[in-house]
Design a binder for these strands. Sequence first.
DNA 1: ATTTACCGTGCTT
DNA 2: AAGCACGGTAAAT
Length: 182
Amino acid sequence: MKVITHTASRTARGKNLTIVWGEHDFSATGMKNTKILVAVTAEGLCWLGINCGVKKLRENWKGAELIEDKDVTAKAAREIARLWPQNLDKLSVPVVLYGTAFQLKVWKELLKIKSGTTVTYSHIARKIGKPAAVRAVGSAVGKNTVSIVVPCHRVVNKASGKINYGWGPTLKIALLEGEKAA
DNA sequence: ATTTACCGTGCTT
DNA sequence: AAGCACGGTAAAT
């Protein structure tokens, strides 16, 4: 999978950017009643939201020009559904990551987590050489813009049974179950 | 069992 | 420019 990164804050990254988006069914994967909102820039996949609506997309790409066109996003959506859960790393569409230097480090680390496995937030913190920045890792993971493909759901709490997930704890569990079963 | 300290980000003042 | 709230974990109380 090709990954393109850009250093930009959340508020600045939408500037002068055109994003095409579309909603697609993800149920064929065994994830019942699940829709993914796929968005692409000229470079590649920049956003994947689960059951989320454009509002979230707009909030995360302030100032960007958003164009709805399912025909454009369908190819990527179909490929994601086909490759999940084991082979997302074979995605032919490049993944485009816009974040701060810290966030980019965290997200790239997420890409190394194998399907069917989980790691803790402190593990990531150690991996990026900032063992004390566990909480910062937590917030960076939560700001991931390309769910599922950048597997933020594979990061779990160490001991406390708490489950945190931007699209809801239930979905996080469902994704992990789906990957384990595969 | 509760509190404290650590870090980066984004929102509010 | 400064302050506040978040989020996960280990260590100290």
